[in-house]
Design a binder for these strands. Structure first.
Lengths: 195, 195, 195, 195
DNA sequence: CATGAATGAGGGTTCATTCAT
DNA sequence: AATGAATGAACCCTCATTCAT
């Protein structure tokens, strides 16, 4: 009675698994349908086309991802603590879902420009969280005032993304959560001596 | 006198243009051949297969790219100056070749895992340059000792890559070279007050 | 009512016709699909690849061919009669299907070694029928004992095959069934006087 | 001075080797040219096209083959002896040139109908030798009069051809010359008791 | 809602042949 | 005579999407 209901979810979960296991280019709609336990045609009752599966997948998973980060960071006091929490939560969540990590860091990047732009739309919410923390830090006087918001955001996101991608490409063989503090320190203090 | 360029070069230049203009997945071998002014079959006298064009393109262009960076940085005195020069040269070169920027930042990422691994092989040389500068900075006492080389490298590369990608995705509408100093400052000093 | 034939059969029949009319090397999959009245892709729902069409065609047609020969021969009393019936049935069946005759005698021989080996596998069953008749004839005392089974089999099959091939190459302009008795006589009695 | 002369021969010998070693469909003109030690274009100074190489090869080799058979058979007294000699010489020559055996029995059969018809033109001379022996045998009273010349010719040629082909397909692992007498006996006396 | 058989467009690669040198 | 770089036509197969049931 309820098992047959959330076909939508079923299909998205299947897509994550199939893409993580087979790679983006070997993830045919029929393979996803099979893994989801539905007929090929059924996919098209829930998704406009194949790309729509991927966008929905990303929206769905990233929505939760960001929500969690929003939750965890708001409870912190200072911008510095919030930033640390953001990094820790970012790492923790991807470490907790190996399939998702592979899909977001490696496989979904192989999509075309159009799809990547939609993906960027989803990411905007995450970037806004980063922006808020930076602005708060500047207001607090903790961070230098006059920072170029866009550049800082790119530094932070670029650093996290590159860090996670390298970890995934190394088959997630080390514990990435252990590196949150050092990454945080690098971002906050840079390469030079902390006074 | 006019077509005296060796076919190999001709084809690589054509590939950059075709990919930049049409996108990775719409860049058929026949389109590249046409742009290069040669027959389809001629491509295969100079390249093993389509992937080989792309790998060669990347090796060729990145080879020059890195070489230039190596040249420019070695003439600088301190690690800090070298890092600034690296960033400036990185930005300057991509700003000077819009097509190449599109190809490396957006289109070539859509390739499959196998090709991306070959691309990473080429990038290694660039990462080594970064590593040397960091190590030099630590020896000089300019940078904190005890930095995790891999993390720092990932921060620097991730930041530059993300910065350039955003600039390309915004259709290169602003001058990225102007941002080199601020990016450098962020990396060296972090978000907090310098001293 | 009219297209009720299963697609599998439809495609095989189309393949025989197309190959007989156009020759092996001009028989593209798309041509077979068109003749069969299905889309190109449909072919691949029923056959693994192009070669599989040809192997299946041969298995299917030769299966019936040999079955018929087995049926007809078993009802005969002596080995000599069985051999005559085998020759008659062999000729009769190919005479009844001109397209098939062209395909088996001329076109399928142009296939590569791999395919020809699979074809030989199918032929084994026919060769076994011949062997049985020879052995029976020797046991009956009708044929010389001590005959080299392999050589005799090769003589019989080689003679029939060459006879049919010549008839096909002469555009099947004479009645090959009329020659069954004389061929039989040659095989059984050789060139010399029958006592 | 003389080494460079018979390019024509050089190319034909190269073709036999290349085809025997690589198979018909993997024997590109460039491969033959390389083995012959000439440039690709040079081939076309001596042969009209690729097919012409193969026809010439067959004419050349079969010319010698048949010549030898003509020589050996004429010196024999009776038709029966001549037939035995024909079989022995046929087997002996192919046994002496493994490459040629592979090419004529297996590889050249993969050619298209047109080429095979030209090949048959060359074989006519061989078939004439067979015909003469049969006619002689009938005149001598050794063979039954009233034999259908074409059928007998097909039986003899079909038997020899099938015998040799089987031997080649079994990688020439046994001595085919040893079987000449038994094959001869089968043809002359058939399956039944020799009186 | 669900199915799954059928569709058909699209592209990398080989290789016989040519021809300027 | 000889070269070999250049040509360009030709084809099998995959897979996202549809639609009759």
């Amino acid at each position: 009675m309820k098992n047959s209901k959330p076909k939508y979810k079923q299909i998205i979960e299947a897509a994550v698994e199939v893409i993580a296991e087979n790679g983006y280019h070997s993830s045919q709609v029929s393979k996803i349908a099979k893994k989801a336990g539905v007929a090929d045609g059924t996919i098209y009752l829930y998704f406009k086309n194949k790309e729509d599966i991927l966008v929905s997948l990303f929206q769905d998973k990233m929505g939760q991802f960001i929500e969690k980060i929003e939750q965890e960071t708001t409870s912190r006091q200072t911008a510095e603590e919030k930033l640390l929490t953001l990094i820790q939560t970012h790492f923790k969540q991807l470490a907790a879902d190996h399939h998702l990590a592979i899909v977001t860091q490696l496989e979904l990047r192989q999509s075309n420009k159009e799809l990547r732009q939609k993906i960027n739309g989803v990411l905007k919410r995450y970037l806004n969280v980063i922006d808020s923390i930076i602005e708060e830090g500047m207001e607090e006087g903790l961070f230098r005032s006059g920072l170029d918001l866009r550049l800082v955001r790119q530094m932070i996101f670029g650093t996290l993304d590159e860090t996670v991608t390298n970890w995934v490409m190394k088959d997630q063989r080390y514990n990435i959560e252990d590196q949150a503090e050092e990454v945080h320190s690098l971002i906050v203090h840079g390469l030079t001596h902390n006074r």
